[in-house]
Every structure is written in structure tokens, then in C-alpha cells.
Amino acid sequence: MKRFDAINRIAEVLTEELVICNIGIPSKELYHLRDRPQNFYMMGSMGLASSIALGLAISQPRKKVWCIDGDGSILMNLGSLSTIANVNPSNLILIVIDNESYGSTGDQYTHTHNNTNLEIIAEGAGFKSIVKITKGEKIKNILRDLGKGCHFVLIKTKPGSALVNNIPLKPIEIKNRFMQSFTKN
């Protein structure tokens, strides 16, 4: 399983969830697989997807918020794990697709390829619900069955990205349609 396959499985389960998606190829892959107004593609601010998702989760407590993040980006903002685990919103799933590499910059290894274990880091940060997935076919059922809570879901994949085009939307369009997707009703 590569990240593209993982995002494909995640995209198939989505219903009303608000999604904050990581910078670079993950956002392009999600756009390609299943674009929807409830997707916020983070085009800049490397490392901050999980933080944006936390802010959204506390301000929209009745919505489910999913963050699609990566190993490189979460390693850049490890403090975010402790903030999220301490705020502990009841409506947040932080999905970290760990392909042990910086996939958007040419597949250079991250430290998870060697000694670093994000599952243990999440536990140390204070997450009470941690799930590790290594088989693609389990993704849908696990995500579907996660109840209320603040969940850390680690999906281990191989490196490598799909060949997908850039997202043609302007950042302002992404923001406006995202906000309208849950404020109009």
C-alpha cells in the first residue's frame, strides 16, 4: 500500500466529515480521488495541518473533523500532538500516513524509517485512542467504527506518490467553498 491507496480508502468512507489535508502531493491525491467542498487543501504552512484541524474541531464541535497528515509534517510539529491530546476534542481523527519519507520532495527518508516511532510518540503526548493500520483493507472499517473521541490513526505505507496534476482551485476558492459547506445549513 502506498499513500495514494490509503487516501483512496479514506476518501471512500467520507460522508459529512470536514477534512484538513496536508500540503503537497497528499492534497493533490485527495483532490484527484475525491474532491468535495468539505476538503480543505492546505497549500502552504508546512507542518500545520493537525493544528488547523484542532482549531476547526473546537470551533465546530458538532462536526466530525478528519486530518490527513504525514510523517514528515507531524515530525515538524510534534508539539501539536501534545496540544491536541490535552485539548482532547471529541470530534477529531488525526490520520498520519507514515510512508517513512518526504513524499512531496523526492522521497527522502524521514526519521520514522529508522528509530522514531510515531505510535509511541502519540501515546507519550497523551492520546488515549491510538490505532495502527498496516493493511489497506482494514482502513475503511476502522475509520467507520471509530466513535466520538480524539483519535490518532497511524497508517504505515510504502513510499511513493501517484502522478496527479496540481489542484486548479485558488486558495480563496478552497476556503470559501469549505466554509460555505458547513455554514449554509
Binding site: I20, F40, S45, L48, A49, S50, S51, I52, A53, L54, G55, L56, A57, I58, S59, Q60, N77, S80, T83, K175, F178, M179
Partner: peptide, 9 residues
């Protein structure tokens, strides 16, 4: 980042 997400919400 948190502020931005909260503003969106």
C-alpha cells in the same frame, strides 16, 4: 495554525 482552523470554524 489553530487560530486559522478556528477562524474557518
Amino acid at each position: 495554525g489553530i487560530a486559522a482552523g478556528a477562524y474557518l470554524g
